[in-house]
């Protein structure tokens, strides 16, 4: 899949996104807060690998969702919240790709360098912060996606299975 101009298009005015994003960011706040706190407790070694970047603000932008995410991996007070794409908070680094690409990365099913080479992943801002985050998350046994799914019990695992099936189907299509 080529980068092409699709990411640009998504950053332009989208009435539906503009209307739904504020509501979604509020609705998702407790869920995302629970996720980041749980992951922080379960994987404290991540913070050591982040070194000086525990105070860094990251934007993670799944281009085909109506909102982006703001992450500050502070071990004392980790932050993960949905933010409107048209009003991003101050940040030092940005990671942008389709939801599928970002899902495969946190499910340990895709290689960060490979999706960068293929232009499916866009990096902006502080490259060292992005590399540190990538390496820190990659040192987690299993996958961040699976840990997140487990938090929500059977519905979470069902959703994970569905997303993994989609990823497998994409992988088979791209290899044929």
């Amino acid at each position: 899949m080529a980068y092409s101009h699709k990411h640009e298009v998504l950053n332009k005015a989208n009435p539906l996104t503009d209307l739904t994003a504020p509501a979604l960011t509020v609705l998702l706040a407790p869920l995302l807060g629970r996720v980041v706190k749980s992951l922080s407790r379960k994987h404290p070694a991540i913070f050591e690998r982040l070194g000086p970047h525990t105070k860094t603000g990251y934007i993670i932008d799944p281009t085909n969702l109506p909102f982006a995410l703001f992450l500050q991996p502070d071990p004392e007070r980790p932050v993960l919240r949905a933010v409107a794409r048209r009003a991003l908070p101050a940040h030092e680094a940005l990671i942008r790709g389709s939801f599928d690409t970002l899902f495969e990365l946190i499910d340990a099913d895709a290689d960060g360098d490979a999706v960068f080479f293929s232009r499916d992943l866009i990096i902006e801002g502080n490259t060292e912060a992005v590399v540190s985050l990538r390496n820190a998350l990659d040192d987690v046994d299993g996958s961040i996606a699976a840990d997140t799914a487990d938090l929500f019990g059977p519905p979470g695992r069902l959703a994970l299975g569905f997303l993994r099936s989609r990823a497998d189907a994409r992988s088979q299509r791209s290899s044929t």
């Binding site: 340990a108 099913d109 895709a110 290689d111 960060g112 360098d113 490979a114 990538r134 990659d138």
Partner: peptide, 8 residues
């Protein structure tokens, strides 16, 4: 590839 991911 020590700089690459578990997936790689």
């Amino acid at each position: 590839g020590r700089q690459r991911s578990k997936s790689y």
